[in-house]
């Protein structure tokens, strides 16, 4: 009963006036419209501007299909590898205290602060024709640069932190009581892992996989350096877009780009759904 006057009174000093509020919201909207929505709309506008036929023709030409296949293949290799490594990383870091643990955390995050171009460059210096292992690879007829292995390696580098980064804070927040209980009750280590550890963090794992996959399919800089950009052969979808764009084939470039933009939108929708539906489960990993 005494709360009513208390709530009514400080309103003037506790928030901004209506006018200021509208102005701030309007300013934020305009900034986002200018920098986010307009470019996104431009992708679809440019893709469909010359009609559906041109759009479909851009997507179904053999080089485009080969780029789509390569992109899917690279993601199908890189994402599972990084899921396994990410789970191992999270288990080691979140479940144990050991000497050098903090250094390890920073090293796992390291690829985020390295330019994608440098991520590609390091592999060229290792496996390129004049690289440290170049002559040996050539003598043994092993292709890494300008071929699938190089593209996969560069993708692994840039997507390395995604899964671990989502899992570590979540595992730390959950604690290890459930796992200890399972062990005490006689579960084998692997049974504990499959029935307790993994299901406990499944939503943040899915979240990490989602981000990892989006980056793996969309990576440009690192892949551009190691792939040699051979049309129809080592060009992933982002590289194919660049090739088409530089040939002034805007319609086809934006057609392929619209697929990747669609992937980005689906990723965002799935991410938002996960955050909304499993807020408690993922909240732990949002403070990283």
């Amino acid at each position: 009963m005494s709360e009513a006057p208390l709530q009514a009174q400080p309103a003037a000093h506790k928030s901004e006036s209506r006018l200021v509020r509208f102005a701030l919201i309007g300013l934020a909207f305009s900034f986002l419209a200018l920098f986010l929505f307009l470019p996104l709309a431009a992708v679809f506008h440019e893709a469909f501007r010359r009609g559906l036929d041109v759009y479909l023709a851009g997507l179904t030409e053999p080089d485009a299909l080969s780029a789509i296949r390569l992109t899917l293949l690279v993601a199908a290799i890189a994402v599972p590898v990084n899921v396994v490594v990410g789970i191992a990383a999270a288990w080691a870091i979140a479940r144990y205290q050991f000497f050098g643990r903090n250094v390890l955390v920073s090293l796992v995050d390291l690829p985020f602060s390295v330019s994608p171009v440098i991520a590609g460059l390091v592999y060229v210096l290792m496996f390129g024709a004049q690289g440290y292992f170049g002559p040996w690879l050539r003598a043994n007829d092993i292709e890494i640069m300008f071929a699938l292995p190089g593209i996969v390696l560069a993708t692994l580098f840039v997507t390395f932190p995604f899964v671990a980064r989502e899992l570590i804070p979540h595992m730390e927040a959950i604690g290890s009581m459930d796992e200890e209980a399972a062990l005490t009750l006689g579960a084998s280590p692997w049974r504990m892992f499959w029935t307790i550890s993994l299901p406990n963090v499944k939503w943040s794992l899915l979240y990490g996989v989602l981000l990892c996959n989006a980056r793996a399919m969309g990576e440009f800089g690192a892949v551009a350096v190691v792939s040699g950009r051979i049309r129809g052969l080592t060009a992933t979808m982002p590289l194919h877009i660049e090739i088409l764009y530089n040939e002034y084939n805007g319609a086809a470039a934006f057609a392929v780009a619209s697929l990747l933009a669609g992937l980005a939108l689906v990723t965002l929708a799935a991410k938002t759904f996960l955050e909304w539906r499993y807020a408690d489960s993922i909240a732990a990993s949002r403070h990283s």
């Binding site: 986010l36 981000l211 989006a214 969309g218 440009f220 990747l260 933009a261 980005a264 939108l265």
Partner: peptide, 13 residues
């Protein structure tokens, strides 16, 4: 969106 949108797509857009 900038996290999810591939950089090449953002570039040409």
């Amino acid at each position: 969106l900038p996290f999810a949108l591939p950089t090449a797509v953002a570039g040409i857009a």
